[in-house]
Design a protein around this nucleic acid. Sequence first.
DNA 1: CATGAATGAGCTTTCATTCAT
DNA 2: TATGAATGAAAGCTCATTCAT
Lengths: 222, 222, 222, 222
Amino acid sequence: MTTRKNSGATATPAKRQRATSSGSASERRDHLVKLAAELFARKGFQATTVREIADEAGILSGSLYHHFDSKETIVDEVLSTFLDDLIARYRAALESGGEPRAVLSEMVRIGFGTLEPHRAAITVMQNDWNYLRQFERFNYLVKAEDEVEQMWVAQIKAGQAAGQFRGDVDPKLTYRMIRDTIWVAVRWFRPGGRLNTTGLAEHYITVLFDGLATGERTTQKA
Amino acid sequence: MTTRKNSGATATPAKRQRATSSGSASERRDHLVKLAAELFARKGFQATTVREIADEAGILSGSLYHHFDSKETIVDEVLSTFLDDLIARYRAALESGGEPRAVLSEMVRIGFGTLEPHRAAITVMQNDWNYLRQFERFNYLVKAEDEVEQMWVAQIKAGQAAGQFRGDVDPKLTYRMIRDTIWVAVRWFRPGGRLNTTGLAEHYITVLFDGLATGERTTQKA
Amino acid sequence: MTTRKNSGATATPAKRQRATSSGSASERRDHLVKLAAELFARKGFQATTVREIADEAGILSGSLYHHFDSKETIVDEVLSTFLDDLIARYRAALESGGEPRAVLSEMVRIGFGTLEPHRAAITVMQNDWNYLRQFERFNYLVKAEDEVEQMWVAQIKAGQAAGQFRGDVDPKLTYRMIRDTIWVAVRWFRPGGRLNTTGLAEHYITVLFDGLATGERTTQKA
Amino acid sequence: MTTRKNSGATATPAKRQRATSSGSASERRDHLVKLAAELFARKGFQATTVREIADEAGILSGSLYHHFDSKETIVDEVLSTFLDDLIARYRAALESGGEPRAVLSEMVRIGFGTLEPHRAAITVMQNDWNYLRQFERFNYLVKAEDEVEQMWVAQIKAGQAAGQFRGDVDPKLTYRMIRDTIWVAVRWFRPGGRLNTTGLAEHYITVLFDGLATGERTTQKA
DNA sequence: CATGAATGAGCTTTCATTCAT
DNA sequence: TATGAATGAAAGCTCATTCAT
């Protein structure tokens, strides 16, 4: 199960490459990806030079090309690793088969839960997506996004059908607002602040389901 | 009223320069800024070359430097024009002196209302902010952001004090979530779709104040 | 009598242009040349932009081209004005018909005497000659230099023949050393210092004729 | 012993960089510096493009930046190499501890002796000094110049105190005249002419110490 | 005479990538 | 695997000069 458009049942091309390499080579590669991800997050993909990545790793820029065949391959690995993990978690939540409101809450928690382990990847996706999407090789990102959208929208619709969610809101629009609110938090969220990501998730779930207002509701709920 | 750090009571340096020029010169300059903004939004600031901007205007790249002294000056004008307008609108809403919930609703409407007229500027701010902030000249963006944050947070706190808003949410966190939800919509919002920006605003206001859930509230409201 | 290669009996092209203009136009032109000369001296010919010259004059760079048809025309006028004056003074000294030593002393005084009124031009000649000589239009400078050399060498040889100067020195070499010593002083000479140009000249004449040493001479004088 | 302002007891940064490279890398770099120096001398620093330097070396202009981080770094190496050598030679002459007149003669010989091996560097220093000194990085040139001046002036004063040199000349002024006379000769001196640099030096020493005149001295010597 | 917009050629520098060693 | 030299394409910017108004 992968997010790559051109991957079969086994793994992404990058992963296959990793598999055929020796264990330590794979670790070296993963380490390089991690270093690069940090730089991409901090400075942006375009503003990060391969030389900076190589410097960080203590090698020369040309040497990076023994591990990756291009700068885009590196960021590809950053993003697909994140998306593979995210989708896997969502699937697990869905397979639990709970009621819509509980599942949706769990999906919100999953989203905020990726903020720390995948901070760099999410940052890159937020900032550089607009640039990266112009390259054919990243088409798979759109497909992954579509798959995720379907998961969310299905749950929202199920919740409306079950009378748990108000019927006068647009499911797709609502999904987008939830999604954006979660990911964009990567811009200002820093571990060690007042709230951890669990607290953030609960805070958001509260407002999301019950609203900011006290007293009577403005609009009739279906 | 300006967002520039080094501007006095009159106008931003750029604006003053524009004012001293003849009317047509100012129009030419504004036209170039508009063309550049579209390109920045579509391709990103770094990926947009000055040659592309010049091509779009039907002149040579060097000729752009008759109007602006750097590529950064152009994007600066794009962003500060947007921020000046936004802050002016927020101020007007605050000066109306309504009750917090009404003011906050109006501020949400203002936010969504900038999505169309300032689509390009907002897109640039979303995508290239991380890159641009490293340059000293864009420090004023941070200051403008702070000013806006204070406006929002003050209203949220006033609403809590007045018993209109639940007291168990963090004002700053709530502001950030509202803010992000509005601006990030620029990524997928296209005029002519199912909802216009007014509809979007009302949709969001509904969810924001009254929540997604029907029936009893999960958490006690203060 | 002019230093331009392509000038007839009347005047240099630049001068002719000046003559046909109205009096005030000529003054304006001279003023611009003076401003430019200062900048050329301070920053070097190449490093001085026409825009800087225009700024100094309070006009736009394009407007300079109503007065001169190129940047080189301006520096040409700076240099030829100096050379015309210098050669005229040398001629006057030669025409006085004094004995070689007296004439040579006078020529040294004339040289140092140009340091103040022609400071900028001499500086340009010292610093930018190497660059300017590659343009055909400045060939006349070489001719002027040759004419000056002949004047000096003739006096030195006459002094040797008359037994005033030692015969074991090379006239051409000696001329070059005297010439260089004078002009290069423009690099460090500043009016208002310990010595004025008259003092400088006398100092140099002393060393030149009588040497730095006291007591017996090292070498036999002819 | 170095002329760089920011160098300690070991070597200039450039030199250290060179030292850590392999032997052939250092040779390549030195070769490039030599090619560049010739071009700088012939056309001037500003008028020489990096493309021309690269062409001369048979590589592309961008490839130069594998060896140097800017055009200024190249000319820096040209000039500091010369100054390091010059100052080392002067120091050796001073350490011999001879009487002032002998030392001064030796210093004159050293000066003329650099005309051939350092022709390009001296030419650049003569022509482009005025331009280069505006950059902070070349401040060390001024310091080197000061150090040299002190060496000369000390010898002249010692010679006056010992009664070898006339007391009615200004030591600093005399130094400048000697210095300029030597270096400026690079403009017309060409190896293979009537006199080699040794001959030149002896010619100048003769005139300098004993003067051009025969017979009685014009001015009383101290 | 001056302006202001534009040209066109060229500049230094950057950078992802290649490849022989 | 890594190095180090080089490529090649392009980038942002400069500047002398032109010209219609």
